[in-house]
């Protein structure tokens, strides 16, 4: 089987979330956006004493930073040995089909989207992992608000940004 079905993925992800939440595991939720400003502050050499946000994210940033290194290893292993999808590429097939063939266009839009994605996630206090998966699993009202706004913005943008008519 070169790909896990969605229901198997959902069950496994639920198991991982419960293990991470439990006191026998990490006693915390899974999150995946705090590591980005954390790494940015390391790379751009910002002083933790000078910036309050840096102090604020010190612990979750480090935790997610280590988890992210694991995710890179996990994704690399399965892409090489199981799904055989490891390859260097610049433009996704779906982008070519529904947007354009330009490498420059894809890279510029990626950079721009990556930039506002992190600003958005940090403003809301979480991302797909921290809010949608971990937050909604705790039935948090904040995460339900976030999930609803993201879904609406996602689908409107998908409609306006891509050329999906007669394809």
């Amino acid at each position: 089987m070169a790909r896990l079905p969605w229901w198997m993925g959902g069950i496994l992800m639920a198991g991982l979330l419960l293990m991470t939440f439990s006191v026998f595991g990490a006693d915390r939720p899974i999150g995946a956006s705090t590591y980005v400003p954390y790494f940015a502050d390391i790379i751009f050499d910002l002083d933790p004493e000078k910036y309050s946000y840096l102090k604020h994210i010190e612990n979750p940033g480090a935790w997610e930073g280590v988890m992210l290194l694991g995710a890179l290893v996990g994704g690399f292993i399965t892409s090489v040995f199981i799904t055989k999808s490891f390859r260097f590429s610049l433009v996704p097939s779906g982008w070519k089909k529904y947007k354009n063939d330009s490498v420059l266009s894809r890279l510029l839009w990626s950079f721009f989207a990556g930039f506002i994605m992190i600003i958005g996630a940090r403003l809301a206090g979480g991302c797909t992992s921290g809010h949608f998966m971990s937050g909604m699993s705790q039935m948090a009202i904040s995460s339900m608000i976030f999930g609803t706004v993201v879904m609406i913005a996602l689908i409107i943008t998908g409609k306006l940004f891509y050329n999906t008519k007669d394809k």
Partner: peptide, 23 residues
């Protein structure tokens, strides 16, 4: 939540990734 969620949804549609799936 409103401003952040909107920015996040827009960028997720364009990027086709989120901070967990990107890496």
């Amino acid at each position: 939540l409103l401003v952040g969620g909107a920015l996040f949804g827009i960028s997720m549609a364009i990027f086709g990734k989120c901070p967990g799936t990107g890496p």
